[in-house]
Structure formats: structure tokens, C-alpha cells
Simulated scan of single mutants.
Amino acid sequence: MIELVIDQRRKDLGGFEVGRVLPYAGRRMVGPFIFFDHMGPAEFQAGFGREVDVRPHPHIGISTLSYLFEGEMTHRDSVGAVQPIRPGEVNWMTAGSGITHSERFEHLRAHGGRMNGIQTWIALPREDEEIDPGFSHHDPEGLPTYEAGGLWARLIAGEAFGAKSVVPVRSPMFYVHWRLQAGAQAQLPAEYPERAAYVAQGVVEVDGRQFHEGQMLVFAPGQPVLFTAVTPAMVMLLGGEPVGERFIEWNFVSSSKARIEQAKADWRAGRMKLPDADDAEFIPLPGDPAPPPNPMS
């Protein structure tokens, strides 16, 4: 039933730690999911430095999905979106042929507080890798929810459990947030060929084994999976139909190595527009020198 267990690897992104799960040497993708970071959990005191902010940087070939349990951050991108995200909300950004964005923590900097959430990248199907970039924001009231028997569930994106999310995905997939009370049971059906579950909080039992916060379980296809909450727990369910091999270098994802090289050249040469509200700085390509002020106009 369980093919693989992946333990998160803690990474410091400059004053802010994340737990990276995907990509992993033994499993690059689960369905179209090619990147999975647990942001925090972290406690911030008011007045922390701007080094925690994620400066403007580029993407191609993917959609990014940001979802918070606690905290607040502000998204800005090159198609003109400026959007705070709060717990339970979804920021869905499609990079396609190319987009740049930043993530700022003004609210936490002003007030302090906790940050805890998940950011994941979803690879676009080959025929959609070069679509126009775009952005959409979705409030929790518009997402399907379910509650019974100690289980609360929200369908964030895709289709599962007979429901469909409004988030505009481009391939068959599912992404679900579960909260379970201690002793509660819930089952993941077998409808998708690639499935995984990430324990975001607490302890759960699956197939007679216990798993804790920071672990992703990747399941073999064909059989439903029963979860029992040993403690109060949060679990993220994810997966879908595979989209084929993808190459990933820095923030670029593509089915073509040549396309990634072109994206690197475009970023280095200043051919990718920065967010209007963030045109004074950006993250240089790894290995390149730090940029001068206002290098792109």
C-alpha cells in the first residue's frame, strides 16, 4: 500500500525555514505535483527584516498554489495581481510561457504572528506549457467542504470525493485538506493512479504504522487507504494523472531542456517583466552576480 515515505528536508530561505518534500531523489513527482514546500511553522516578532521576503523571481511551465493554515503574505506578479492570502484561501498563479512574482510579509512584519502553510507547484500538460500567464484568488467559502465523524475536509483543487473545486486546474488532479480529531478515521479512495498524503500536523496511523508531521506517504495504485488519527491531525492529500517527465532547474520547469535554457537566458538578459510594484529588485540566476538597482525597465 505504501510505496515510499519521504521526510521533509528543512531549508533556510534567508531568515525563514521551509520543509521541502518534493522533488525527492526517489520520487520526482506525484501526479502533476512537482514541488511541495511546508512553509514554517514559524513564529515572527513584529519588525523583522525584509530578508524574509521572497524577492521577484521567474517561473515557466507550471501553476503555483499557495495555501495557508496560519499567517498572511502578499503576492505581486507581472500580470498585475496584488493579492494578500490568508488562512483557507487559495492563490493560483499560472506561469505558462513566463511570469515573475514576489511574496511579501508586510502584515506579519507590522503585527508579528505565526506563518504556517503549503506552497506547491503543479506541472502543466505539455500542450499547455506555453499558455498565457494568469492569476486567480479563491476564498474558502467557494471551496467544497465536508464535516462528519470527527473529520473536516476541504477540496482545494481538482476533483475528489464526488466534488469539484473552482480552482482552474489544467489536468486531472486532486488536492485536499483534512483535519481529524483524535480517533477519527477517513479513507482516501483509489480513483487516481498517483496519490500521496502529507502529515502537516499530529500523528496518523496507516497500514499499522504511525506517521508524524513532516512525512509524506506515497501510495501504490489500486487500493483505498484508511487513515486513523492517533492525535488531532492535519493531512494534505494530493495526486492525479501523471503528465510525463519534467526537467526542473531553479524556478523553471519544462518538458524541454532547451526551453529551460531559453528561460535562463531571458531572465539573465532582463527580457522578463517584473511586477509593477516590485521593479527595484529581483533574485538573480544562481551563480550570477547580484544585480544593480533597477536593472529592468
Rank of each mutant, 00 (worst) to 15 (best):
V79P: 06
H59V: 07
P23D: 12
W152I: 11
I6Q: 06
Y67C: 00
R268S: 10
A123D: 09
A277G: 14
W92I: 08
E213G: 02
I2C: 08
D207C: 02
I283E: 14
Y192C: 03
V253T: 05
R50E: 15
P87T: 12
I6W: 10
D279Y: 11
E103D: 04
P32M: 12
A184M: 02
F105S: 00
G96H: 08
M234L: 11
G117I: 04
E261N: 01
A123W: 07
K11Y: 00
S165F: 08
S102D: 07
W178V: 03
E89H: 04
V204D: 14
G239D: 12
Q45T: 14
I99A: 00
G134N: 11
G240T: 09
P144R: 09
Q119H: 09
G40D: 06
F211E: 10
R271S: 02
G113K: 06
L237P: 10
D139L: 12
I131M: 07
F36G: 00
P144E: 13
P172E: 14
P56Q: 06
Y198M: 04
P189V: 05
G19H: 04
P133Q: 08
V169H: 06
G96V: 01
V5C: 06
T231N: 03
N294L: 10
P125D: 14
N294H: 13
S297A: 11
Q210A: 01
V166Y: 14
H107K: 09
V5S: 05
G26L: 12
H137W: 11
S256G: 03
W178P: 03
V253R: 02
H75S: 05
D139P: 11
M234Q: 15
H57T: 05
P275N: 08
E72P: 13
S102Y: 02
G214S: 00
E249T: 03
R76C: 09
Y24Q: 13
E261V: 00
S255Y: 11
G88V: 10
V176Y: 04
A163S: 10
S171R: 13
G222D: 07
E159M: 04
F161D: 15
H101K: 03
F69L: 14
P172I: 11
E72R: 10
H107T: 15
H101R: 01
L155H: 12
F252V: 04
I99F: 02
M234P: 10
M29W: 09
K164N: 06
P84M: 03
H137L: 02
V176S: 01
F282D: 09
P172H: 10
G158T: 06
F227Q: 09
V176C: 00
G61W: 02
A184Y: 07
Q181V: 15
